[in-house]
């Protein structure tokens, strides 16, 4: 794991494999990284907003659980973004297939399930809170 992290911070190592591609491919890869990073930042921002703007919820500490879950998901998205960027850059330089990833599907499922759970929580409050 430390070897992988060391590689992210070592651009010379990444630049030593394969051939330097058309710079537009590298720029597109970088923009994809930035888009994922902003997705992570949006989740972090959502967690911070949930912690301070949500009213008290029916289950104790549910607000805190939602906030921490969003914050950790945001951090995970950011880390995965740089890892995927490095693997894609390597693949482009070596002329290989771009790395496949299950991450978008997993993230979509997590966000979908989380949203459904919140719908249940809101309905519980609407029915029970009268």
């Amino acid at each position: 794991m430390w070897e992988v992290i060391r590689r992210w911070f070592d651009p010379a190592e990444l630049g030593s494999v394969g051939e330097t591609p058309d710079y537009r491919f590298s720029l597109a890869n970088e923009r994809t990284f930035l888009a994922w990073l902003r997705t992570g930042l949006a989740l972090v921002g959502g967690g911070l907003a949930a912690a301070q703007f949500l009213p008290p919820l029916p289950m104790s500490h549910l607000r805190e659980v939602i906030a921490v879950a969003l914050l950790l998901l945001g951090a995970a998205v950011a880390i995965r973004a740089v890892d995927h960027w490095a693997r894609t850059e390597r693949a482009i330089r070596l002329g290989q297939e771009l790395p496949a990833s299950r991450f978008p599907a997993i993230l979509a499922l997590a966000v979908g399930v989380g949203a459904l759970l919140l719908v249940v929580a809101v309905l519980m409050r609407a029915i029970g809170g009268r």
Partner: peptide, 11 residues
């Protein structure tokens, strides 16, 4: 400029 240490540092 593309790539470099900026990306992991921003992460």
């Amino acid at each position: 400029r593309t790539g470099g240490r900026t990306l992991p540092l921003v992460t």
